[in-house]
């Protein structure tokens, strides 16, 4: 129940928008809910709808439209490699392929232990620092730039250890 647990934060979010425009708070509230379990549950959508006076179907359509919201649990650590044109011109495709090879997966796949998913994504505004990727985990999202396959594998190891020790 995010409404009770995050009452103070919800107040702060709602205060950003005019009183009669509560619906604007849907995106920040979805982030709040997602922080909890790594994805947005049906229950969260109902709750958010109630807070904002919109239907849970409206909330679900927002979750569906934007790629940074998830409605199901995913591989805990998501490595998202940018292989858009500018990065690809600097070797991002080869980097992505080798990284996956080393982890024994296909692009978009999850490692056997279920801990790491590697995906290709569109431009992340770091094109001069390719190869680069962002990591999405329950803690949030961070950038890793000017990478090699070796440094990326080290990042993966560190994240796995952190994850296991939780």
């Amino acid at each position: 129940m995010i409404a009770e647990k995050y009452a103070a934060e919800i107040e702060i979010i709602l205060a950003k928008y005019p009183l009669d425009q509560k619906r604007s708070a849907v995106m920040p509230l979805l982030y709040l809910a997602q922080r909890e379990g790594g994805y947005v549950t049906k229950g969260d959508m109902v709750e958010i709808g109630k807070i904002l006076g919109i239907t849970s179907t409206d909330v679900a359509s927002i979750v569906g439209f934007y790629t940074l919201y998830y409605d199901q649990p995913e591989g805990t650590i998501r490595i998202q490699v940018c292989n858009d044109l500018p990065c690809a011109l600097r070797g991002a495709d080869e980097f992505l392929e080798k990284l996956c090879e080393n982890l024994g997966i296909k692009i978009g796949g999850t490692t056997q232990d279920g801990s790491v998913t590697v995906e290709a994504v569109m431009c992340l505004a770091a094109c001069d620092k390719a190869p680069m990727f962002q990591v999405q985990s329950a803690d949030g999202l961070s950038y890793y730039e000017d990478q090699t396959v070796r440094s990326a594998l080290e990042v993966v190891e560190t994240l796995r250890k952190q994850d296991a020790s939780k």
Partner: peptide
């Protein structure tokens, strides 16, 4: 988000 743009950041 335009591929190739990283100035505002």
């Amino acid at each position: 988000s335009e591929p190739g743009t990283f100035k505002d950041r």
